[in-house]
Design a protein around this nucleic acid. Structure first.
Lengths: 201, 201
DNA sequence: TATAGTATCAGACTACAGTCTAGTTTTTTG
DNA sequence: CAAAAAACTAGACTGTAGTCTGATACTATA
């Protein structure tokens, strides 16, 4: 055989086809208005293929959520060395929330928050939370090193609080039927929390 | 007719019967393991009756959640006049979280959080949140009156933050597969938030 | 190239929430 | 009290996510 690269499996093509059609349909009609049957019909595949490549209907939607991880890191690495870690945290949160709102959208976020609560196992959400967790911990470690954090609080405590404040803002925003932005929910919240965390001088 | 009271409608009996059986089954096997068919079979009623009296499967489960409202008020009214409103808030949160964990349980809370995110309309959750909202606002108004709150923050801001911190703690706890208590999630969080909210003297 | 093993695929089938319709019982009204 | 209206009930039916089974295509190996 001349071609050295293993011939791509049929499956990869099918998977891509399903994904493309599904994402288009979700964008057009919204997650709940699209059925798996629609997807396999429009992509000329079958249920068998669908569930060969994806664990569930929401799983396929969650694929988009993998982009978040990259974004986390990107933001993290963009900070100048000497920036105040508390400020880094604050900016990090705002960029994050903005990204989730603008790039992901409320519909996706709601599906993700639902799926995470329902599934016993792995979801991209929990994975990426782990990555988010790592970054906030790093930033917090810096802050502790510079003695900026109330010494009554452990790293775990603080890091958990940050996570919770993100979840709280997002969940609350997801409940809302208005156009009020996610950032407007999270900004004062995170700011106040960071103030509470900081060493009182 | 001698009896002055209107004869109770058949329906009331059926409703009670369904409710009793359903709650028992939920307690025995957990919400997701019980089907509506199970419930109507065990209660010797029918789908028609079930949906005549309840809007959905989760709706029936949510009935239990109405107790929360009473508890909110009870706690609120139990505070002595002259207590520091910030302390009231702190105690209120802890009692609330404890109640949700012990009396409602994680399973119910997860269903509620899911249902709220999915439904476009009314749920007991949103209703009772409104009531929770009122109480936290009252407590915050007291605090503002006594000039205990950072004057940069509006009543709305602060009240929203409190709500979000509850939601964040509960959601995060719901995600957890460990036995870690809800109170252990919310306590440091609320404490820190209240510190951030308070006027720095 | 024949054979065995594995990945992929089609679509019938299952499980279950929720809807619909037709019939029954109870209440109201004239 | 009879007729009409309303409340209630049974269970067949629908919609849809997800499972299962048995083909089919591809790959590796001899």
């Amino acid at each position: 055989m001349i071609e050295p690269v293993k011939k791509q499996r049929r499956g990869e093509e099918t998977k891509k086809k399903i994904l493309a059609v599904a994402l288009r349909l979700f964008a057009e009609k919204g997650f709940n208005k699209v059925t798996v049957d629609d997807i396999v019909k429009k992509s000329a595949t079958s249920k068998g293929s669908f569930y060969q490549h994806f664990r569930s209907k929401s799983d396929i939607f969650l694929v988009r959520f993998t982009e978040v991880d990259n974004y986390y890191l990107e933001v993290y690495e963009s900070f100048p060395e000497n920036m105040d870690p508390i400020e880094k945290l604050s900016i990090f949160s705002q960029k994050l929330m903005n990204f989730l709102e603008v790039e992901m959208g409320k519909d996706l976020m709601k599906v993700i928050y639902n799926a995470a609560l329902e599934s016993k196992e792995h979801t991209y959400f929990l994975d990426s939370n782990r990555s988010l967790f790592k970054i906030t911990r790093k930033l917090l470690e810096e802050a502790i090193e510079e003695d900026k954090i109330d010494s009554e609080l452990s790293l775990d405590d603080v890091s958990t609080m940050i996570t919770q404040s993100f979840m709280g803002s997002i969940y609350h925003w997801g409940l809302q039927n208005t156009d009020r932005s996610l950032e407007s929910f999270s900004k004062p919240f995170v700011k106040t929390l960071l103030k509470g965390i900081s060493k009182t001088t």
